[in-house]
Design a protein around this nucleic acid. Structure first.
Ligand SMILES: [Mn+2]
Ligand SMILES: [Mn+2]
Ligand SMILES: [Zn+2]
Ligand SMILES: [Zn+2]
Lengths: 127, 127
DNA sequence: TCTTAAATGCAACTGAGTCGCATCAAATAG
DNA sequence: CTATTTGATGCGACTCAGTTGCATTTAAGA
């Protein structure tokens, strides 16, 4: 888990309270988060949130995943890995057990799996 | 390529002009299409378009892919296959050369690959 | 042909994300 | 430590894909 300080070294932008608080949340999360997910724990205007996310993406500090619920989910950029999106509960999970896909002439930068997560699968079995 | 007639057999809804025209477009497309893609070739209100798409999804005639451009792309439901979304030109392609991904305890219904398509890769190389 | 339930078009709405602008606060020079 | 500057913030207005309510039309079938 990278520290906020290390992430910001040598980046050319101001170290504001908002940015430190934002990165702190992402550094301590095990899964990608949307603005919706964190707006209550973070008093920050959504314009500021999204502008900072854009900066972080430019600086390759943060990564975005588009879910099927029309929201974007963000995470600290780490070793490339796939993501699973549950179409029942909308959760987004990191899948770090090596899934590699290649395709001739294509450059693949992201693999997204959609389906039903273990929790929702279990809940379904009970009915 | 399934015919429109076959697709509609035994489905419990009215066979309107709009629905026939809509399915005709999808049956003759090699790639998923958005409302944006077809609105000029089809004189149909967008409310009607989306309501019919919803019906078709319920009847398992049509399949949706959410792109990263915040639009939904639709195709006739066929044998399950992966999709490639180009983050440069936003095109959505069907990948029918068997890509299979499984994950213990998860039900995977869709595989989406994001990256750069051959066309955009070539264009990039020239610069 | 008549009846009726479902489908359509239109306009108003929703909700995630963006933008312009006035104000504020990091960074840095004095 | 204070003053200046420039980028960051908050707010409200806006965008745009998709949705909804409602009055009108049309497919189906009696
Ligand atoms: Mn991840
Ligand atoms: Mn396809
Ligand atoms: Zn789930
Ligand atoms: Zn492309």
């Amino acid at each position: 888990m990278a520290s906020v300080k290390v992430l910001l070294e040598g980046k050319d932008f101001k170290l504001t309270q908002a940015r430190k608080a934002l990165l702190d949340i992402f550094v301590n999360s095990t899964k990608p988060l949307s603005y919706e997910d964190i707006k209550s724990t973070l008093s920050m205007d959504k314009a500021t949130f999204y502008r900072n996310i854009t900066k972080f993406e430019e600086q390759k500090i943060i990564n975005a995943i588009e879910s099927h619920d029309k929201k974007r989910y963000f995470e600290i950029k780490a070793k490339s890995h796939a993501h699973f999106i549950c179409t029942t509960c909308n959760s987004v999970e990191c899948i770090k057990n090596g899934i590699y896909v290649t395709l001739k002439n294509y450059t693949i930068s992201n693999v997204i799996l959609q389906g039903i997560c273990p929790t929702c699968n279990l809940a379904n079995d009970k009915n």
